[in-house]
Simulated scan of single mutants.
Amino acid sequence: MVLKFFIFSIFFILGCNTSENVKKHFSLNKKQIEKTIDRWNIIIKHASIQYNVDEKLIKSIIYVESAGNTFARSSSNAIGLMQIKPSAAGLDIYRLIGKKGEPSIQELYNPQININIGASYIHLLQKRNLFGIKNKEIMRYATIVSYVNGASALLKIFAKNQDTAIKIINSITVKKFFQYVNKHPAKQASHYLEKVIKIYKLI
């Protein structure tokens, strides 16, 4: 028991990098990407089916967010493989399933719980905040930006009102959508989008 605790402690200390540190090892090598996320394939597949979310999108977000480090933790308290914030996405999903409070840090270090919450949150974004976007490619890109920066922040780029924003998005091309996002003050959102898209196209 003591040995088990000691091993876990070592993994915890070594693995508890911030998301920012993990991203320094970001690679666009297809074999490296597959090797990094291979161990989570079954969980990802199940979550993809359960929440009707693109499997490749889940994998891409995991790779960009944590590089497959289950103990990744950012300075803003985003936790685990999909960098779930307990008081944001975690809270939203707990409310959705009728649970009180928010997931604990220990729960979010669990790959299955983390991926399930992440996939459920993607589903929530698409079916509630971004519902009505017709172009599948733009929906994917809008989801990615919303995942990192919040759906309300994305929609406000286009209009103050959600319905109006969706109408504008439906009237523009993919290229124009990128131009809108690039003009937004939160530049990290467009950089994040570019990274996830690159990974998505590789896997």
Rank of each mutant, 00 (worst) to 15 (best):
M1C: 09
L3M: 10
F12Q: 06
F12K: 06
L14H: 04
T18C: 00
S19V: 15
E20F: 12
E20L: 11
N21D: 04
K24D: 02
L28C: 07
N29D: 15
K31L: 12
E34C: 05
D38T: 04
D38C: 07
I42C: 03
K45D: 03
A47K: 06
S48R: 04
S48K: 08
I49P: 00
Y51P: 09
N52V: 13
V53W: 01
V53T: 10
V53A: 02
L57G: 03
L57E: 10
I61R: 02
I62S: 01
I62C: 02
Y63H: 02
Y63K: 03
S66F: 14
T70A: 05
S74W: 08
S76C: 01
N77H: 10
N77G: 00
I79S: 00
Q83T: 08
Q83A: 04
I84N: 00
K85Y: 10
P86K: 00
A89R: 04
I93Y: 02
Y94G: 03
I97V: 13
I97N: 08
K100A: 10
K100I: 13
E102Y: 12
Q106L: 14
Y109I: 12
Y109A: 05
N110Y: 07
P111S: 11
Q112I: 12
Q112C: 09
Q112T: 13
I115D: 04
I115W: 03
N116A: 00
G118K: 03
A119P: 03
S120K: 09
I122H: 03
Q126W: 02
K127M: 05
F131P: 03
F131Y: 12
K134T: 11
K136E: 14
I138F: 11
Y141E: 14
Y141C: 04
A142K: 07
T143P: 04
T143G: 02
I144T: 08
Y147R: 01
N149S: 08
G150N: 06
G150D: 05
A153P: 05
A153L: 00
L155I: 05
F158S: 09
F158N: 07
A159I: 08
K160M: 07
N161L: 08
I166L: 12
I169M: 12
T173W: 10
V174F: 15
K176L: 11
K176V: 14
F178L: 15
K183H: 11
P185V: 01
P185D: 02
P185E: 02
A186D: 11
A186F: 09
S190I: 15
S190K: 14
Y192M: 06
Y192V: 11
E194F: 11
E194H: 15
V196C: 05
I197S: 02
K198D: 14
K198N: 15
I199W: 09
K201D: 15
